[in-house]
């Protein structure tokens, strides 16, 4: 029994536009004092009111390949509270900046599940780890949209879980959708959902380049 070669299957999948490789993203942040109010609000707005928000605790490491003119970023993420789930290797492309009228950031994103040897693999391949952190928080969903409210913790030298220290006194709120290319209508839905959260948190496009170089 012969199966279609896997690589050509993937190519056809990509061509027929069913593999979600674009991420639409809106980000914001909220202070520790008011995060409870935000969680309460999200709980009411999002799906599955009965089951409550889903907690998560992830450890993310960011690797860079420096041999190219534009450094390539690869992120490796694993769930600390679900050790049996596979590790995730994520490639995030540069956001498309051209259109100012677009409601959300659009960037290409490829998520690959892999075994735990991925860190060794990448190090042998020549990538270097830039930084790592732990994110702990809650996840919600509404239709296709995923909303995460998480706090970023700095990893300590001894890498024990109790001695993590938070990076700031606020929570990062992200609203994202993974969709195939060309489905821009979802961006409008995301924008209207973000409006509903407006007085508590402002979800908006964040210009990373400006953040990196900082205001003069």
């Amino acid at each position: 029994m012969m199966a279609q070669p896997l690589s050509s299957a993937i190519d056809t999948a990509f061509k027929s536009n069913i593999v979600p490789d674009q991420e639409y993203l809106l980000q914001g942040s909220v202070l520790d004092k008011v995060v409870e109010v935000l969680l309460h609000r999200l709980r009411g707005l999002c799906d599955n009111v009965d089951s409550g928000p889903e907690p998560f605790q992830d450890h993310e490491m960011c690797f860079t390949i420096r041999t190219t003119p534009t450094p390539l970023n690869l992120r490796v993420r694993r769930a600390l509270d679900h050790q049996e789930m596979p590790w995730q290797l994520r490639y995030i492309g540069q956001p498309e900046y051209g259109d100012k009228m677009r409601p959300t950031i659009i960037r290409s994103s490829i998520d690959i599940g892999c075994s735990a040897t991925v860190v060794e693999f990448l190090t042998e391949l020549g990538c270097r780890m830039e930084f790592e952190y732990i994110a702990r928080g809650y996840m919600f969903r509404k239709g296709r949209m995923k909303i995460t409210v998480s706090k970023v913790f700095k990893m300590n030298q001894n890498k024990s879980q109790e001695s993590m220290e938070p990076l700031s006194e606020s929570y990062l709120v992200e609203l994202s959708v993974l969709a195939p290319r060309g489905q821009d209508a979802i961006a409008e839905d995301m924008r209207s959902f973000a409006e509903q959260l407006r007085p508590l948190v402002n979800l908006d496009k964040v210009d990373f380049k400006r953040l990196v170089h900082g205001p003069p």
């Binding site: 690589s7 299957a9 490829i110 599940g113 892999c114 060794e120 693999f121």
Partner: peptide, 10 residues
Amino acid sequence: VPLVSDPLFM
């Protein structure tokens, strides 16, 4: 170093 992953890795 072996790595077992989803087909998107290609």
